[in-house]
Design a binder for these strands. Structure first.
Lengths: 138, 138, 138, 138
DNA sequence: GTGGTCTAGACCACC
DNA sequence: GTGGTCTAGACCACG
């Protein structure tokens, strides 16, 4: 598990962690049932406060992404276990995200086709794993 | 000019204003050279603090979207006028937005094709606002 | 607003706050639209850390009990605004609570009628307001 | 003896065991003098740590619910044998539980009569219900 | 002024 | 060992 955070990015560190964990799950680099690094370990690795890691984990658990087993650690949840929870409002979230992206793209002067290609490329990068910047493991 | 804000959405009010103004420009409902409502008028209409509207306008001006003419008000800028300002980093912003969207969509269980369709639909909805053709900038 | 917490009760302080706020809303001592004390104020009054109060407020907001208005404070939400959110699983929570209570009561040797009376008395106390219970400490 | 625990429920595993044992006693599915499964057997069945089962048993013994006979195992105690132990504080516990339940119910929008009915139903289920109600998981 | 985030260090319950 | 809670104090974004 290699994660990287940028404390000076202005984007909350705990959200950076959340996003990367979700990204790894989607990309298949974290599989259901797999154990996440302990709060202390990850905090030491990233050189941040354990509470910050804990906040990220707590939020992920609330979102149904991972589950906590007392005294054992955090584990990636089986997909479908939480599907019922947010299956209904997920589309709304996604279309909202699409609207935001489309606005940005149009504002930047991209054509419709160009914008779609950018999304397609991003998806490709997500499933194959970022080419640069991240190392595979395990 | 119809704007609406939700003070309790957790999303900064001044950003809500910025986003809607940009959206209107992209959709062609605000055309280059057109005058925006005054800070005080808009604040009164939305029942929010004038400082908040002012911040939105200032940020829009910094982004080169609108320009301030002392004593006259804020005006939508001619496309291309700000091209030099952020032409270089705009693509980076867009790809970043694409990555965020793709992550959300994948996490929500959408297929690649489905995600692309959602984006295409959002674009369609954006341009088929009440008005004519889309003016692209840059 | 009179709240009291017992830091040495073993029950998390932030949950004590949550419970009392909910209790006050149910009892009508906090009405929809009313403003809660600021995090700093309440923390100073209770002589606890602001972060602890903040955690209580954040959790209440997540539960749809209160809403945050940026830069203004926390406000009691209008009932029904969140009804749709947890209307479905609320009954499950309630029946679970009922099962726990019934088990306790039976284990303690109460009769069925006696247990019902205890609940009825508790409801009475809730709506009329705790007779004692509002004590200052430290 | 069929017990089930959910390690990822957030509720301590040892308390889940305690609660189910007490429930069985109240419901008559475990009668005074009856022997509980050994720590090792139950731990193996539930696929949990024997220390956890041991803690549950120890706590039950402290509460006077069961008694340990060295070299023989744990046995359900005769009712009344522990009455003197917690007869005094039991009512306080029960009224506390009632308050918690009433708060939950009122918050969920139940009427006073409805809440009482839920409790009555739960009691009914407790005494009649040993039939099924046992679910396996994992 | 408001809440949001982060740090450094501590104690606790649980497995 | 694990995560959960709390303290004391700091900086930032927002209205």
């Amino acid at each position: 598990m290699f994660l990287s955070v940028d404390p000076s990015s202005g984007f909350p560190v705990y959200r950076q962690i959340m996003e990367q964990v979700r990204r790894m799950i989607v990309a298949g680099r974290l599989t259901p049932g797999e154990k996440l690094p302990s709060i202390r370990d990850l905090a030491a690795t990233l050189q941040i406060n354990p509470l910050t890691v804990g906040k990220a984990y707590t939020e992920l658990e609330r979102g149904g992404i991972v589950e906590m087993r007392r005294g054992l650690g955090m584990y990636v949840r089986r997909p479908g276990a939480h599907a019922a929870t947010d299956a209904d409002d997920a589309p709304a979230t996604v279309t909202g995200g699409a609207q935001r992206f489309v606005l940005e793209a149009a504002q930047a002067g991209l054509s419709r086709a160009h914008a779609l290609k950018v999304v397609d490329d991003a998806w490709q990068e997500l499933v194959t794993g970022p080419v640069k910047n991240v190392r595979r493991q395990r």
